[in-house]
Amino acid sequence: MDWVSWWNAYSDIILGIGINGLLALSIYLTLSCGLLTLANAAFMGIGAYAGALVSMQTSWPFSVALFVATSLPATAAILIGIPLLRLTGVYLAMATLGFGEVVRIILLNMDITGGALGLNGIPPLTQWWHVLGTLILTVLLVVALKKSKMGRAFEAIREDETAARLMGIHTDRIKLFAFVLGAAIAGLAGGLSAHYTFTLSPGNFGFEAAVDILTMAVLGGIGGVPGPLMGAAILTILPELLRGLQDYRMAANGLILVMVVLFLPGGLWQPGRFRKRMSC
């Protein structure tokens, strides 16, 4: 099989891994502060629609579309994050789930977003190197963040928020930062994906999508940056490998999720474990 047809056949899976990698990293940021937010799919949706509308309705360049796709969800995240991040645990998860559903229904009822028909004929501007470049930059950013004072603050908050606050960490600001940065990355991923799938509809950004994003991060593990990327890669390729299962294909997905939580609580990527095994 020659290179061109190989690329034609697999480019979507490969770009999908990249986009999903970005999404998994976006939820990884909040998860590493110990926050379970289910709003990343909604932020992705806001970014995707905003970016696509810029490309379709104006003659501005692709970079502007991506900028809007990144900044609009970030702004929304600031606005809802300030009141919302006072909540913790399951309450935060439920509130973000509610927010996600509200965003989906608003997208469904606006004229400019095309309602249930969504947007069709978005110019296919995303090239493979856009996705690769964004992914590399994001990974570098997240790795740098993890090593910085900020990253240690994330960890302190995850371990014990009260203790972190007593130590003088501005927990509210740090949590908001993680939430907003996650929203920006998710929005950027949405903007990129909108420009290679040609179409958007509100159903792509509902509860299921939020769960998919979470699953990737959990499967890979949040012990380090490679975890979410691994999870994204596996869950993007898996449906292709499981085609033969037909009706029961989704069952495998569910089973994997249960098994990982029960038997691999830290996810697949656990640096310590690998190092130990490799040495012997």
Partner: peptide, 13 residues
Amino acid sequence: KEEAINVYKKLAF
């Protein structure tokens, strides 16, 4: 939609 794109590419290429 994403699956439709995947499947189309698989079948065609």
